[in-house]
Amino acid sequence: MAVGAAGDSREDAARDRLIAEATARFLRLRTDPADAAGRADLARWLAASPRHGEVWRALERTWRATGLLGPLAAPQSAPSPVRRPARPSKRARRLTAFALAASLALGIGALVGGPLWPGADYRAGAAGIAAIVLEDGSRVRLDAGSALDVAYGPDRREVALRDGPAFFEVEPDTARPFVVRAGAVEVTVTGTAFAIDVSASEVGVSVEHGGVRVVSAGRSALLAPGERMRIAKADGAVVRDRVPLSAIGPWRRGRLLVEDRALSEVVEAVERHFAGAIILGDGAMAERRVTGVFDLGDPERALRAAVEPLGGEIRRLGPWLLMVSGPSDPR
């Protein structure tokens, strides 16, 4: 069963994130066409998925529709050495950024068109948290931007968390275990309360009360109250630690709690609550570490609170686009 408006918001947010990835690369090369590293990064990104090429072509068509400049050719192979032109002035780079935002406002989303994946059974939009009661009485809360599928059978209650954070309060039923699939990770319980967070880089599981069994890459582990496990998507590496119960699923109370996490992860979490897209185009800034508690009720303020102490800055490019950059370039 789909949730109409929330489902549309989730699909739009997912599409916006993909557009933001293309936009960051487009802006980088538009402001510095001789950036060999930027072109190599673009080539890798385009090769990763046919969908990336579709979004890139839509971005170029929209850019040309503004009548500002011709297309920016995507690299077909390793870039040849070129003479680096003079770096555009800071004012020119700012004007380019605003022009790009204007081109997006003309309708790149319509050019890309359609959802990035088929509709999930339950979704939460950027407006807030979705509260769900399943047919057995188990309760699920989905954070903004999260998506869940449900497949109950006579011997097993199974759900799949596609993306984002969720908190589960499972009704006891020893004859029908409750199983959550999150990518390559499987979590099994009979009755307990726990949180799962599916992000771009990892799957996190933490237990508030009761116990769960986590299976990943053929390995199994039991988690008790106050225990947390994080499994990296890239290589399956596992980090297991303890966490205060009050720090489990803090998004339920409108808070983002991070401890020594990359800024890119903070941006991903905040973006779920932002009605638009956030561009983090500075690779060095993306890896800077952040610790703090942030108010998700005001995503832009939360983002500034994370970015500005690192010397970065945030610019609003239109009503739905925020750009995060490193320390200001004096040129």
Rank of each mutant, 00 (worst) to 15 (best):
G7Q: 12
G7R: 05
D8Y: 03
S9I: 00
R10G: 08
R10H: 14
E11I: 07
R15N: 04
D16S: 10
R17Y: 01
R17F: 00
R17D: 14
L18K: 09
L18T: 12
I19Y: 02
I19E: 03
A20Y: 04
T23E: 06
A24C: 07
F26H: 09
F26I: 06
R28L: 13
L29P: 06
L29N: 04
L29Q: 05
T31L: 05
T31Q: 14
D32N: 15
D32Q: 14
P33G: 05
A34H: 02
A36M: 07
A36T: 15
A37R: 13
R39L: 11
A40H: 03
L42E: 06
R44D: 12
R44V: 14
R44P: 04
W45Y: 08
W45D: 06
W45V: 10
L46K: 05
L46Q: 05
A47P: 00
A48W: 07
S49L: 03
P50V: 12
P50M: 14
R51I: 11
G53M: 09
G53L: 07
G53Q: 10
E54A: 15
E54Q: 14
V55Y: 07
V55R: 01
V55W: 07
W56F: 12
W56Y: 07
R57W: 02
R57I: 05
A58Q: 02
A58P: 01
L59C: 06
E60K: 05
R61L: 11
R61M: 09
T62L: 01
T62V: 15
W63G: 06
R64M: 15
R64Y: 03
R64K: 10
R64F: 03
A65V: 01
G67F: 08
L69N: 01
G70D: 11
G70N: 05
P71V: 06
P71E: 08
A73E: 15
A74Y: 00
A74G: 14
A74P: 03
P75F: 03
P75Y: 06
Q76T: 15
S77G: 15
P79G: 10
P79Y: 02
P81S: 12
R83E: 13
R83K: 12
R84G: 05
P85I: 04
A86P: 01
A86T: 09
A92W: 07
A92F: 07
A92E: 09
R93P: 03
R93I: 10
R94W: 02
R94H: 07
T96N: 11
A97T: 14
A97P: 02
A97N: 04
A97V: 10
F98S: 13
F98R: 13
A99P: 01
A99H: 10
A99C: 00
L100D: 08
L100G: 09
L100C: 15
A102I: 01
A102K: 12
L104E: 05
A105W: 00
G107R: 10
A110G: 05
V112K: 04
V112P: 02
V112W: 07
V112T: 15
V112C: 03
G114P: 04
P115L: 14
W117D: 13
P118F: 08
G119T: 12
G119N: 08
G119K: 06
A120D: 11
